[in-house]
Amino acid sequence: MTRTRRLSLAVATAAVAALALAACSGGGSSNAEGTVTDGKLTIATGDPAYAPWVEDNEPQSGKGFEAAVAYAVAEEMGYAKSDVVWKRSTFDSAIAPGPKDWDLNLQQFSIDAKRKKAVDMSTAYYTTTQAVVTSGSSKAADATTVSALADDTIGVAAGSTSIQSVKDVLGVTPQVFNSNDDAVLALKSGQIDAIVTDLPTAFSMAATQVDDGTVSAQFPQDGKGDQFGFVLPKGSALTGKVDKALASLQSDGTLEQLETKWLSSATNTPVLK
């Protein structure tokens, strides 16, 4: 073999290696669809994933708000339910820089400019609202209207948007505590009748911190809460497609219907009137 031919072969080999490396570094997608597996849409969520976002830790069932949203987006993008593959990931690894072994990830990621430096984020599929957490023994347990809560003592965490929401919606001044944990202690001791916090925190608090805890009601949407979006690998070819799918689902009322079904009806959490 001549020196020139050896040199040409070496250059060609290096070029192929460079292309392979570039494909790997771009989030793991190397086919024409921009997905990690040709013909499949790989979606990740947490492990475990909790209700009401995913029912019974089984996202493949399509039950739970985020599981249902994931399948609705997949369908808008042209994927059948059988073409959706589920994976699990931690929250922190999902928003860290670097290649991913999934195409989309959703586990209540707030859309954040800092996160967008490491990963892509879609437009919002949900905007958080405020909710009322109480216990079965509290006099606020059955309060599902603004007037019913008017005479109750409400606790909130310092620095939270809940403070102004309580003033605006309930027309009362809440008791302010250093943290949600302090507010929970006050609820347990009977110092307050209920706690107001954002809905995702409310579900977690009622399930894990408050004895006989319940999310008795949620505030009407005001559009001021945190917005949840899908996380995608940085520079994903799918980001625009996900945004287009979400715009369609927003326009035809699907997102609102899923929110009502899984975050209100299924959890028995009425909107305050």
Rank of each mutant, 00 (worst) to 15 (best):
Ala140Val: 06
Lys117Met: 13
Phe177Thr: 09
Ser165Ile: 08
Lys117Phe: 12
Ala67Trp: 10
Tyr50Gln: 13
Glu256Asn: 13
Ile43Glu: 03
Asp252Gln: 10
Val119Asn: 08
Pro220Val: 12
Arg6Ile: 01
Val156Met: 00
Ala131Gly: 09
Val231Leu: 03
Ser251Leu: 03
Ser82Met: 00
Tyr125Cys: 10
Gly155Ala: 13
Ile163Trp: 00
Gly46Cys: 07
Cys24Tyr: 15
Arg115Glu: 07
Gly46Ile: 04
Asp182Phe: 10
Phe177Leu: 07
Asp211Trp: 00
Gly223Ala: 12
Asp92Ile: 14
Ser204Glu: 14
Thr127Ala: 09
Gln108Gly: 09
Met121Trp: 02
Asn31Gly: 10
Lys244Phe: 01
Asp226Ala: 15
Ser135Asp: 12
Ala206Ser: 15
Leu232Asn: 05
Val73Gly: 08
Asn31Glu: 03
Phe228Trp: 12
Leu9Tyr: 07
Ser165Tyr: 13
Lys273Ala: 15
Ser138Leu: 10
Gly235Glu: 07
Lys87Tyr: 02
Lys188Leu: 12
Trp53Gln: 03
Ala49Ile: 05
Thr4Met: 00
Thr4Ile: 03
Ala183Val: 10
Ala118Cys: 02
Tyr71Pro: 05
Val169Phe: 06
Ser264Phe: 05
Pro270Ser: 04
Ala14Ile: 15
Gly62Lys: 08
Ser162Pro: 08
Ile95Glu: 02
Thr2Leu: 02
Lys40Gly: 02
Gln130Gly: 13
Thr37Gly: 03
Ala17Trp: 06
Pro52Gly: 05
Tyr71Cys: 02
Ser135Leu: 08
Lys117Trp: 07
